[in-house]
Design a protein around this nucleic acid. Structure first.
Lengths: 207, 207, 207, 207
DNA sequence: TATGAATGAGCATTCATTCAT
DNA sequence: CATGAATGAATGCTCATTCAT
């Protein structure tokens, strides 16, 4: 009987590998369920079951449910970051670069539906009493945009005078997020969104 | 002590007035607690207690907790709407108008700290199974901005060619929301935020 | 429009009549709702509303919900009693009398669907702490049957020797109730039920 | 103190056994409380407490309160079934068999006071919206009686002509139930009840 | 006599987390 | 390292009844 019980669990050479594998499986399961059902409707038990490990194992790898969610967010962030970096690297000019980034983001969304929307479920939703902070994903992206903007506008003399780069970065990411969310909700043509956002942001940043 | 014990409850001649007053009291209590503790950490019981009415009375006025929250959101929306309309009415020009609106919003926030941030807690947080929809506050404001932008750009030939007004409206509100939230979180100077956002948006919209 | 607004409420000559009318209306409403929804799913509020009187008025006429239900039961009992008495009076012989009673009961059930089944909802369902007793409807009918049986068997020498009349009465009513309930639930032909029950009981009682 | 603190909980080697034991304890506690207080006055919490387990454990074993009650009913049904089968097996003749069954039932009732009365609390009392049905205990017994009667009357030519076996089965169980309930309520001599019911039913069934 | 706003005890159920094995 | 049975605090909501008008 013991051989065919949970065959996926065998063939684990080293304990270290086994632990790593459990974590991977849990993270993949968490990602799937968080995206499908949302944070509040996903229980650690569900994640463990989906990952085919015992309930208790969950807490061997994550301090609590929130930590698991944040791990998922971090994973998504890195994934998107790499994805965009590869795609948008060769874009030229302010407008071209913005468009390339937008297109990459949408392509990532197509490849991993719901992941970005779920990962941005931050602020209030998973609030914990400990109030430890963990900068929201959107804000971190805003900070990146602040840097990106400096680079993109370098040849045209930098960010227009009087504009605070930090504020601009957040404004950009906010604009993209809100416009995209609503467009998605309304089933709007994606091309129009990309075009409008690109022009809108380029005009705002151009000298 | 006996004089100030529930003095608000006296002299209620007509049941209709009495009921209306209860609702008002509940709504005020709800607003206070939702802002102070957030949606999830506020129980109908707490609201009733704060309003100095029985638990059951809460359900005499609101179908459920969610309905109460939405009533609070609606109240805040109308309040802000009036507030901004009065303040920004006499502003002149694209840049002037944008600035006036931004300043009004910040003034409202000073007068009613936390209300806007709480009222925007829409989307996922208070999700119900019934999935009735209720357009998020931010999106509604985005739609208003779309209209506003058409008016403001009328003299300079309307919205720049190729821009989708709906997308632009959402982009504006997203930019304002995100930039303001982060600025607030970081304790940034408000003047810089107003200035940057005003210029940023005006540049984007100018012909 | 004003003429047909609650026309039932006007033209109340004397207060005494008004009170009696309220009670009647409440009882009719109670009967309707108890039958349609059952005891537990009918609230005094619902009854008052259906009767088109204020919620508080309910307690002007009934001590509590239970008393209202018992009043409904009593009404049904009297109604059925009269109904059966009229129909079964002229029946001849043991078998004929039993059949006449059974047929009358079924006719009553057709005229007032659900009333008997609901009225028999006694024992546990509406249990109150006060445990005042109120003999269950079924038991009272059993007692009546005990008397009836004595009369019907008089000419053949009375109840067969060794049989306790009280027990027999309850047995008869129990047999009728259970057989009819299940037959109704199973959509069985009524004629077969009447025939079988009549023969069954007549054989048991014949000398 | 340490010796008698939850001594039942010790020495539980395997989790499977532990789980089974919990269920047993819960079921025993449920039986006790349902019989003592009735369905509506027994809360899952009470059952858990009586079983000396946490509240949540209750829902580890039963989907809901209703499922727990039905499990109790099933247990009682099987218990009585075995009990009667053993006692009434060697009875001879129609009258003898009926009497043996009746006596067995009363003996079971003496051994487990209140269990049968409680288990028959089916129909309306524990009604759920899902309306899944679950044939009432009394009806099931009626169906069994239909079979029993066929066997018992086999030698005398089967069920008397014109009688529907199904109807007869339900009539018998109804007669027994109602007569016994009332006799119990009235503190009537048990021997008289057995004697009367036996004769009554035997006469009805004899050819 | 009538009203209907107000009441608050009461309840079934969930779920993040622990810990003995 | 893994397990999964056990936990119990916490919560939104109902409804029979009262009472000021």
């Amino acid at each position: 009987m013991s051989e065919n019980l949970a065959p996926v669990r065998k063939a684990l050479k080293q304990p270290a590998k086994r632990k790593a594998q459990s974590r991977e499986r849990l993270l993949a399961a968490a990602r799937k369920l968080f995206v499908e059902r949302g944070y509040h409707d996903t229980r650690p038990q569900d994640i463990a079951k989906e990952a085919d490990v015992g309930h208790g194992t969950f807490y061997l790898h994550f301090a609590d449910k929130r930590a698991c969610f944040l791990a998922f967010v971090e994973e998504a962030r890195e994934e998107l970051s790499e994805f965009v970096a590869q795609r948008a690297a060769k874009a030229k000019g302010l407008e071209g670069s913005i468009e390339a980034v937008l297109v990459s983001i949408y392509e990532y969304s197509d490849l991993h539906p719901g992941v970005l929307a779920t990962a941005m479920t931050d602020d209030v939703v998973i609030a914990s009493d400990s109030a430890d902070g963990q900068t929201p994903l959107l804000q971190r992206w805003g900070e990146q945009w602040a840097e990106t903007v400096k680079t993109l506008t370098a040849e045209s003399g930098g960010i227009p005078a009087g504009l605070d780069a930090g504020v601009v970065g957040q404004a950009i990411v906010g604009a993209i997020h809100q416009a995209s969310s609503v467009a998605h909700r309304q089933g709007k043509q994606r091309a129009a969104v990309v075009k409008t956002l690109t022009k809108f942001l380029a005009r705002a940043l151009r000298g």
